Computed example of a mutant assay.
Amino acid sequence: MKEGPDIAHIAALIGDPARANMLTALMSGKALTATELATEAGITVQTASTHLAKLAEGGLVETRKQGRHKYSSLANDDIATLLENLMGVAAKTGHLRTRTGPKDAALRKARVCYNHLAGDMGTQMYDSLRARDMLHHSGETLHLSPTGESFVTALGIDLPHLQHQRAPLCRDCLDWSERRSHLAGSLGRALLSRFIELGWAKPVADSRVIRFSSLGSTEFAKHFPL
């Protein structure tokens, strides 16, 4: 038996279609009940509970009890990054679901990727920041430049608070629909929260879609021009 990380075990946990659908639903960043996840996966609640137990044992989800209900969420940012990268590989290699529609188009335009903005608007924000030298790479690490620090501070981001967190401030995340990078890390999370706080955008219930208002789209384009 080979020594080292057992990637086959993790792959098997994710590879089951029902579990894959449940994990994808948790990419909304919300904690969901077994009943809600059963609906997403098209299975019974009892079967969903069995799957959740396996995912929790494998370290992919965590479950907490509140009142009479148990809520499950992705264990950490690393799991969300892994899932988004797998979506990118699936899209790049042509393994796509055949059913498309308005919801699919909305997901491609703007959606939440666990806790940050993804889709066309997510990559636009990333590309705009890079083009104006507000984000730059040092080796494989993504940094915010002094100009970028001033820009996000003017947007109302509490940068010193973010810089003292354990999570990385800036991180690349491969976008499955655009097949380009968008901004993750604590700054990516803070920017999406700020857009919602300003009233530019709001999450769509029971979906990963982020919908920008007319004013929000105008302000977004003004702050993140291509």
Rank of each mutant, 00 (worst) to 15 (best):
M1R: 12
K2L: 15
A8Q: 15
H9A: 14
H9C: 07
A11D: 13
L13D: 10
D16N: 12
D16A: 07
A25N: 01
M27H: 09
A31H: 14
T33R: 05
T35L: 10
T35M: 13
L37P: 07
L37V: 06
L37W: 08
T44A: 11
V45W: 04
T47V: 09
S49W: 03
T50Q: 12
L52E: 08
L52Q: 14
K54Y: 14
L55G: 12
E57G: 12
G59C: 14
L60N: 14
R64L: 09
K65I: 09
S72L: 07
S72T: 15
S72F: 05
S73V: 11
N76F: 04
T81S: 10
L83Y: 01
L83W: 01
N85F: 02
A90Y: 07
A90E: 11
T93M: 07
H95M: 10
L96E: 15
L96Q: 15
P102A: 05
A106I: 00
A106C: 01
R108Y: 02
R108H: 03
A110D: 00
V112E: 00
C113A: 13
C113T: 06
N115E: 05
N115D: 12
G119N: 08
G122P: 03
T123W: 04
Q124H: 05
Q124A: 03
M125R: 06
L129D: 07
L129Y: 06
R132Q: 11
R132C: 10
R132V: 07
D133Y: 13
H137S: 11
H137K: 13
S138Y: 02
L142K: 04
S145K: 10
S145G: 08
P146V: 11
F151K: 02
L155D: 06
I157F: 01
Q163Y: 08
H164F: 08
P168S: 07
D172V: 04
C173T: 12
D175L: 00
D175G: 00
E178C: 00
E178K: 00
R179G: 06
L183N: 02
S186A: 15
G188D: 00
G188K: 03
G188W: 02
F195T: 01
F195Q: 03
G199C: 05
A201Q: 00
A201D: 00
A205K: 14
S207L: 01
I210V: 15
S217F: 10
S217A: 14
S217G: 11
T218V: 08
F220R: 00
A221Q: 10
A221D: 12
K222L: 13
H223F: 13
F224L: 01
F224T: 04
